[in-house]
């Protein structure tokens, strides 16, 4: 019994609110409810006429999928280029030597350097012989001294 009274009490509207009344204090512009169904119908027609592709591309899921696809495509296209460039920069000295332009350069340098030394040696010997002859020095004496 007590429980029933409590529920009724909860459900009841107090006297104070009755004095306010239940009349709707809000108003709408004249003929508003006559034109509202037309406005709604027009909006629906607009939505129907908009290409379904636009709706498809405006969907969040589509945006996420396309973004992910772009990122993957970027890596697929640019990864080979990036990796080639990276590998180039990692070429060892031997790789350079193998390349023709560098190997031919090295060969010439080496040949010229070696022949230059040989020539220098020969010219030094000639100079020494000239000096000894010029001063009339006995070579046998020198050889004896060196022993």
């Amino acid at each position: 019994m007590k429980k029933t009274n409590a529920i009724e009490n909860i459900d009841s509207t107090p006297q104070m609110l009755y004095s306010v009344g239940k009349e709707n204090p809000f108003r709408v512009p004249e003929n508003y409810f006559d034109t509202l169904p037309i406005s709604i119908a027009n909006k629906i027609t607009e939505k129907r006429e908009t290409s379904p592709w636009i709706h498809f591309f405006l969907k969040k899921e589509t945006i996420y999928t396309v973004s992910l696809g772009c990122i993957i495509a970027f890596f697929v296209i640019f990864f080979p280029i990036i990796s080639t460039h990276y590998n180039d920069s990692k070429l060892s000295v031997s790789d350079y030597v193998i390349e023709e332009k560098y190997s031919s350069f090295d060969e010439d340098m080496l040949v010229s350097f070696l022949t230059e030394n040989e020539e220098n040696k020969a010219s030094d010997n000639d100079y020494l012989m000239d000096y000894l002859l010029h001063n009339d020095t006995d070579i046998n004496l020198i050889m004896e001294e060196l022993k």
Binding site: S19, V20, G21, E23, P25, F26, R27, V28, P29
Partner: peptide
């Protein structure tokens, strides 16, 4: 578009 009296506004 509100035409309520003082108590309704309250």
């Amino acid at each position: 578009y509100f035409s309520g009296n003082v108590i309704q506004k309250k």
